[in-house]
Computed example of a mutant assay.
Amino acid sequence: MRGLDKVVPDPAAAVAGIPDGASLAVGGFGLCGNPMELIRALLAQGTSGLSVVSNNCGVDDWGLGLLLDAGRIVKMTSSYVGENKEFERRFLAGELEVELTPQGTLAEKLRAGGAGIAAFFTRTGVGTQVAEGGLPRRYDGAGGVAVASPPKEVRTFDGKPYVLEEAITCDVALVHARRGDRAGNLVFHASARNFNPLAAMAGRLCVAEVEELVETGDIPPDDVHLPGVFVHRVVEVGTDVEKRIERRTAREG
């Protein structure tokens, strides 16, 4: 089993070697399941010029928002701007390229990349700028569009139009899991599972932070959510890592 030991000593070692200009697939949905310790380590390492694929970009002071605020991200491929005011400001000011992608399509593009599928056809986006092109990807800072999305192939199957979407693969994936073993088998907790397995599959190098590290064989095979074949580095961050939510709501009474 020693040859399967993928554990590294700390988050800094986990992200070591990720170069400037790398493309990243990052797990999380809102602030749920964000690989915060890896994001902090990447920030401390000084890596810049990043193209990031993630459901959203955190908030101004948490999640991927930390990298964005430091000017380390040059492109985001995501489903929505969310609660991040700096994301909105940079996009409209022409400082950030953004490829907005329907959420289910984004999930499938990552899954397809991990499964070795080059592209797929979907009904989502047919008849809109998603298929026809023209969605702003970069503004010029004066209200005009500097870069717009290109048109995509549309083909008819069984009398219905479908748009062609290409798969996504990235240089590196950063994910957060509740539990992992030394061989990289991962278990995610509840809704923190979200985009994490998909991001992991799409990364040519996958780095996983886990709250609890166990020995290989301690996780029953049927309980594994992501097999270790997709994971290359594992770092334990403890169960007391800070977790945030975007908006806390409570029901009266």
Rank of each mutant, 00 (worst) to 15 (best):
L66F: 02
L31V: 04
R247A: 13
F157G: 07
L92C: 01
D171I: 02
D60C: 08
G17L: 04
S54D: 03
A112L: 01
V53K: 03
R204K: 13
G71S: 00
A16L: 09
S191M: 15
L38C: 11
P161I: 12
L106Y: 00
P35V: 01
V52C: 08
V15H: 06
S79W: 11
A131W: 09
Y162L: 06
E97S: 14
E88H: 14
Y80M: 14
S191F: 14
A250S: 10
V241W: 12
G33N: 13
P227Y: 07
P227I: 04
E99S: 08
R233E: 10
A199P: 10
L92E: 07
R72Y: 03
F91L: 04
G159F: 15
R111N: 00
V241G: 14
L24I: 15
I18S: 08
M201H: 01
L24S: 15
N55H: 13
I117S: 09
V175C: 03
S51C: 02
G141E: 05
A93S: 12
G46V: 02
N84H: 03
H176F: 11
S191C: 11
V235Q: 04
P136H: 12
E242V: 12
P19Y: 08
D223P: 00
I219S: 02
R193F: 00
V231H: 11
V98P: 09
F87N: 11
T169S: 06
T169M: 06
P221C: 06
G82C: 07
G3P: 14
A199Y: 09
K6M: 15
G71I: 00
S23V: 04
T239L: 06
V59H: 01
L43I: 02
V210P: 05
T124G: 00
R179E: 00
P102D: 06
I168V: 14
T122K: 05
A131Q: 07
L31K: 04
L96S: 03
V163L: 04
L198Y: 12
A131N: 08
G159P: 12
P220T: 03
G125Y: 03
D140K: 08
V231Y: 12
P220D: 07
E236K: 01
